[in-house]
Design a protein around this nucleic acid. Structure first.
Length: 562
RNA sequence: GCCCCCAUCGUCUAGUCAGGUUAGGACGCCAGGUUUUCAUCCUGGUAACAGGGGUUCGAAUCCCCUUGGGGGUGCCA
């Protein structure tokens, strides 16, 4: 036996029917981590046996999301555009799309058929429905088993003559024990599996069959997947036994839910927008978002789901943050890939303790690749806490040096906020530097800098702040603002440091606290007493605008002092 | 209905396998401090072993029951 055959192989096998769900991302991450940890291989396989729902677009989106997270694969489709250095077919196990493996499946279908371990069944969906209803009425679990006196030869003849049929596996009558690395030993009696379908009427293998054949042929040694598959496992083992395959190691991991304890789903997003519309009595879509007819129909039907991009344009027009569900959602919301992987790794898995014995929470992909252990996967489902994710993201952004933040923020804006870029022009670097210390996500980053984008004439002054910082005191804020204006007007270099220095010197010379000038200036610039650092705030506006805003503020409030 | 899995602060979790801890950390929340505002940062606080039976000198930890949560029960994956 050579090293090649003893090497561990894990796989992530998405079905290309949508974006990469955050739960799927965690499964992929753990599969990746286990392969790295054990110096094995991680492979990607595309499970596109559901021809009606699968699409190339969603396959591309899923691969791109994985690559963006830094979850790269050894075997599988080529890397998405813009990535390189992973994927391929070094071990000669392709194709990686189940839709292109029909011949392979046929070979094994025939093997089972010849051995009498699989048989054609001709029941129509309606007949099956009736049988299920009957079992339900009798308060029993429906189990399909081979009819008494089943005539193999006759059935094969019917099948070969083209009669519509499926293939079912003859399952054993003995209980099956699953040895799960996470859950332990679980015994399944025959009540858990019946003669399930292994080939659909359209000739495609079912999930159960394809997964078992492909895993075996692709040398998969460790199957790490969500707990929703636990009940499928005896079926897979029955199939492996019938086919003479080795049984891989199984590890079923807990599920991830939203804050409410429900499954995270796209439906949740539709729900959020619909509730918002109803609460705010919005009966028509904002101008330039979506077709009013579509909107109306969607609003009226609680279960209706809108296309993802339509929903997003609607949400952004309503200034509503959509609950994120897919990796793409989190990416668009301005979360960092290294933060997402760090955070989801913590959902259902615990890293080793730090050297001093304290708990570890922050780590990168390299650490995960070294530290990952199946034994530290938990058993109970986890809720996804966006507050904590946000906190991690803020910490990570805060830890970047300014040039890194600027570069990454720029890259994000190019993709998700091009308007910001055109409005800012060559002031982008200064803007990025200004908002960096306050940024929780790239989406939220621009908020403290909102004053940059409004017209001076459109500034609305906060009444409370005006009273406190402009009208009261001796000298009043307005008086300080007036003398401060002259000082700023005479300033030659209008960049952050000189501005800060000049303001400081001015306050000291006049024996004033910094706030005496700073707060009135903030109100003049933004309308309220909150802004980023004064040097940044003033310099990004430019001297002319700063003086304009001071003048407007002064004239606006002079009547009140009189 | 039937079957399977799970159960520590509001949330993620350490501790459970090899019973003995003031049940620890993180996010959140509250209070105080630093700061020209905000944010950051610092300090402190809040808050949990689902309930009931056992076993034991001793139970978060082992066993049973109840309750609660989740999953499955497809010619979806």
């Amino acid at each position: 036996m050579n090293n090649h055959t003893t090497q561990s192989v894990t796989r992530f096998a998405p079905s290309p029917t949508g974006l990469l769900h955050i739960g799927g991302a965690r499964t992929a991450l753990f599969c990746w981590a286990f392969a790295r940890k054990t110096a094995g291989r991680f492979l990607i396989r595309i499970e596109d046996t559901d021809t009606a729902r699968s699409s190339a677009t969603s396959e591309t989106a899923i691969l791109e999301a994985l690559a963006w997270l830094g979850i790269t694969w050894d075997d599988g489709p080529p890397p998405p555009t813009g990535y390189s250095g992973f994927g391929g077919d070094e071990r000669n196990v392709a194709p990686f799309h189940q839709s292109r493996r029909a011949e392979i499946y046929d070979k094994y279908f025939n093997q089972l058929l010849d051995a009498g371990l699989a048989y054609p069944a001709f029941d129509t969906p309606e007949e099956l429905d009736a049988m299920r209803a009957e079992a339900q009425a009798a308060k029993q679990t429906f189990r399909y088993t081979m009819p008494e006196g089943y005539d193999f030869a006759a059935a094969r003849k019917r099948a070969e003559s083209g009669e519509r049929h499926v293939l079912r596996l003859r399952t054993p009558e003995e209980p099956i024990t699953v040895n799960d690395e996470v859950l332990g030993e679980i015994n399944f009696t025959t009540a858990h599996y019946d003669d399930f379908v292994i080939r659909k009427a359209d000739g495609m293998p079912t999930y159960h069959f394809a997964v078992v054949v492909d895993d075996a042929l692709m040398g998969v040694t460790h199957v790490l997947r969500g707990q929703e598959h636990l009940n499928n496992t005896p079926k897979h083992i029955a199939l492996q036994q019938a086919l003479g395959f080795d049984i891989p190691v199984y590890a079923h991991m807990p599920l991830i839910f939203n804050a409410k304890g429900a499954k995270m789903s796209k439906r949740e997003q539709d729900q959020a927008v619909r509730v918002f519309c109803k609460d705010n009595e919005i009966v028509a879509p904002p101008e330039g978002t979506i077709d009013p007819a579509i909107f109306e129909k969607w609003l009226g039907d609680k279960k209706a789901q809108m296309e993802t991009d339509q929903l997003q344009s609607l949400a952004s027009a309503l200034e509503l943050d959509l609950p994120e569900v897919s990796v793409d959602d989190f990416r668009a919301a301005g979360y960092l890939p290294e933060v997402i992987t760090n955070f989801i790794a913590l959902l259902g898995w615990t890293p080793s303790k730090q050297d001093d014995g304290s708990d570890r929470e922050k780590f990168d992909m390299d650490f995960l690749a070294k530290d990952f252990e199946l034994s530290r996967i938990g058993k109970s489902n986890a809720r996804f806490d966006r507050d904590k994710l946000m906190s991690f993201n803020q910490d990570a952004i805060g830890a970047m040096d300014p040039s890194e933040f600027t570069a990454r923020y720029l890259a994000w804006c190019k993709q998700y906020a091009p308007n910001l870029l055109t409005q800012l022009g060559d002031r982008f670097d200064a803007f990025a530097r200004m908002v960096h210390p306050r940024a929780k996500t790239f989406v939220h980053a621009a908020e403290p800098g909102a004053f940059v984008f409004i017209e001076t004439d459109a500034i609305e002054y906060n009444e409370k702040n005006v009273k406190k910082f402009l009208l009261k005191g001796e000298p009043s804020g307005l008086e300080t603002l007036t003398s401060g204006r002259a000082m700023l007007a005479s300033l030659e270099e209008f960049t952050p440091e000189p501005i800060e220095a000049a303001i400081k010197a001015f306050c000291e010379a006049n024996e004033l606290g910094m706030g005496k000038l700073a707060q009135p200036l903030r109100i003049a610039m933004t309308g309220c007493a909150v802004s980023p650092g004064l040097g940044d705030t003033l310099s990004i506006l430019g001297k002319e605008t700063v003086l304009d805003r001071i003048d407007r503020c002064l004239s606006h409030h002079s009547a009140e002092t009189a």
